[in-house]
Amino acid sequence: MSATGTVTASSHELGDFSDAVARAYFPHRLLVKGRASGPADLRAVDLGPVRLARIGWGSEVSVESDHPGAWAVNVPRSGVLEAQIGAHHVLSLDGQATVCPPNEETRMTRWSADCSIVGMRVDRDYLVEEVAALVGLHTDRLPAQLDLRTDGGRAWIGLLGSIGTEALRNPSLARDQRVARRLAATLTAALVAASFPDEPGCGTIRPRIVSRVVEAMEADPARDWTAADLAREAGVGIRRLQQGFQRYLGSTPTQELLTIRLARVHGDLLAGRGDTVAEVATRWGFAHLGRFAASYRERYGVAPSDSLRSR
């Protein structure tokens, strides 16, 4: 597909128009839910691993697609875009973007007649590579919705509009593969920045890397966690995970797991949830009771048996 001009169709021609959208953006199943209130409109440009499209159906419709092999990030510039993405219900208005993952059934249950979207399709493998290169995350997950009122969101939507407009005005840009790839890389970098924003004071290490691992350890402290297990939870390498913990928490993943386990034991001893110290310590993953007792005393200033007796 090369850069195209405007495609229009009236409501009784939406079958042909739907075929054009499928070729330009994504294959889908269309259900027309209301009478036409205006012409359908499609403008699209191909930048290799990225495609841009502006789509308005002119009628209220629902659209189903599993977005084979690529992400779709859809920004309603008017009207309402309501979707069911797996277990997530996403309602997007102007200033928000609905993010549809590849190879997963998505139902746009309400695409209002006055809703015109600006969409960016980005190949899954290309985005995975860019996320890894730009933020050090080995993941194919994005948030289900983007807030375009953030600095990163505004930067991305601004580029999406300007690059899309210029590429449609000058089709030779898309025909030059080197230029098209540069434009695709610029847009994708902005999308990644909007999807994985920096947190204050954390430099290039994303706190979400740390938060994801802490949440996993909090959910199952007794599990026999290995460094590889924790790195897989974060979607990064072991060394990068350790750097993130050191920069953000001033500790290591092992030290944080110890803190979580000690807190669980402390709470259970004080609440009387257990007859012996050994029973409670074993419940929360401590296999060596001598080392456990030393760590407990260091943290709480008393022996665990004292906490048990004080209940």
Rank of each mutant, 00 (worst) to 15 (best):
M1R: 14
G5E: 10
S10D: 12
G15I: 02
A24D: 07
F26M: 08
P27Q: 05
P27R: 07
R29Y: 09
K33I: 09
G34C: 07
R35D: 15
G38T: 07
V45S: 07
V45M: 02
P49R: 01
V50Y: 03
A53M: 09
I55M: 09
G58W: 00
G58L: 00
S62C: 10
V63S: 14
V63R: 15
R77K: 08
S78C: 02
E82C: 06
I85Q: 09
I85N: 06
G86T: 10
G86C: 12
G86H: 14
H89S: 11
L93H: 14
L93A: 11
D94I: 12
A97L: 04
R107Y: 07
M108Q: 09
R110Q: 10
D114W: 00
C115W: 00
G119T: 13
V122E: 01
E130A: 15
V135F: 02
G136Y: 05
L137F: 05
R141F: 03
D147G: 01
L148P: 10
T150H: 08
A155S: 03
S162H: 11
S162D: 12
S162W: 08
L168C: 10
R169C: 05
N170H: 13
N170L: 13
P171E: 11
L173W: 09
Q177K: 09
R178I: 10
R178L: 12
R181K: 15
R181G: 11
L191F: 02
A193F: 03
A194M: 05
A194F: 03
S195F: 00
I205K: 03
R206G: 01
E218A: 13
P221I: 15
Q242D: 06
F245P: 02
Q246S: 12
Q246R: 12
Y248M: 05
G250N: 08
S251E: 10
T252G: 08
L258R: 15
I260V: 15
R261F: 04
L262W: 07
R264V: 08
L269Q: 10
L269T: 08
L270E: 13
A271Q: 11
G272R: 11
R273K: 14
T276Y: 12
V280K: 03
V280P: 01
T282S: 14
T282I: 10
W284C: 03
A287I: 08
L289P: 01
Y300G: 01
G301V: 06
V302C: 14
V302Q: 10
V302S: 10
A303D: 14
P304G: 06
P304V: 06
P304I: 04
S305K: 11
